[in-house]
Design a protein around this nucleic acid. Structure first.
Length: 254
DNA sequence: CGTCCACGTCTAC
DNA sequence: TAGACCTGGACGG
């Protein structure tokens, strides 16, 4: 479930799991066409960070730290696999005592390469909200922002971490016409950018309920109740210019 | 059986 | 701006 909230939860999950563990090897499932992992600094410890839809695994050995930059695609997640357990769709395995940390990805759209977070994706709207805003402000004059806001919300150069369900919820809860130009929407609707952060945070806490042992700050509101627009039968949708289904309030149909 | 659909990028005409 | 990259679940005949 990988938009910003789920990638963040994945990163938390990894950090919780690797606590106190030492890793010895890493291997790639041969069925996956991605980069082979050649590890020459072993053993190593692991820690994780996320930024928007990217996740970096830091492999920390005596001789230094290497960063493995990953994206989760449509179905990527991590899982602890006890020794001997088989998992058809585990594509990266980091071996430790008694089991492995596994990157599991049914559709294999997830990718990895050596390096830290990409330069060409914007700041994280949760962790780095001021820079998230200023990055947009500094580029608002560009042609990118002449496109409809419904589409620009998916541009990872500015909205790193926003995906198809978050854009629908952001548009809906900010009462924003998805077909208005992004410049006008951002200038005239002051809730829009704020909701990029607050809805991402809410999705993180709601979806994280099953993974971590904190109190859900949203009380009784369930995750299914939180989702107001995306996939809702009473809403409208169109296929946008990139081929994705854009969900929106039917009142914007004219 | 078949067709459509999915929380995302990529690269190649 | 099409497609390519993938698997599997839902649903129709």
């Amino acid at each position: 479930m990988p938009e910003i909230a789920e990638v963040r939860i994945t990163s938390d999950y990894i950090n919780q799991l690797v606590k106190g563990k030492t890793f010895y090897t890493a291997r790639k499932n041969p069925v996956h066409k991605g980069l082979e992992l050649e590890l020459y600094d072993t053993p190593f410890k692991i820690s994780s960070r996320s930024r928007g839809k990217e996740l970096c695994l830091y492999l920390i050995s005596k001789s230094g730290t290497r960063s493995l930059r990953m994206t989760m695609g449509m179905s990527g997640h991590f899982k602890w696999m006890p020794e001997g357990q088989l998992e058809k769709h585990a594509h990266l395995l980091f071996n430790s005592d008694g089991g492995s940390l596994a990157f599991v990805d049914v559709r294999r759209f997830g990718k990895w390469c050596w390096g830290d977070f990409s330069e060409n994706r914007g700041p994280d709207p949760i962790d780095d909200y001021q820079n998230f805003r200023s990055n947009i402000a500094a580029n608002l004059h560009k042609k990118d922002f002449e496109k409809p806001i419904g589409e620009v919300l998916m541009n990872q150069r500015y909205f790193n971490g926003i995906g198809n369900y978050l854009r629908a919820e952001i548009l809906f809860k900010s009462n924003q016409n998805p077909f208005e130009s992004a410049v006008n929407a951002i200038i005239n609707n002051d809730r829009l950018l704020e909701l990029c952060r607050t809805l991402s945070v809410q999705a993180y806490f709601l979806n994280g309920g099953s993974i971590k042992d904190w109190q859900n700050p949203f009380g009784n509101e369930s995750s299914s109740n939180w989702m107001k627009c995306y996939g809702n039968k009473s809403m409208s949708y169109i296929i946008d210019s990139t081929g994705r289904r854009l969900w929106f309030d039917p009142k914007w149909l004219s």
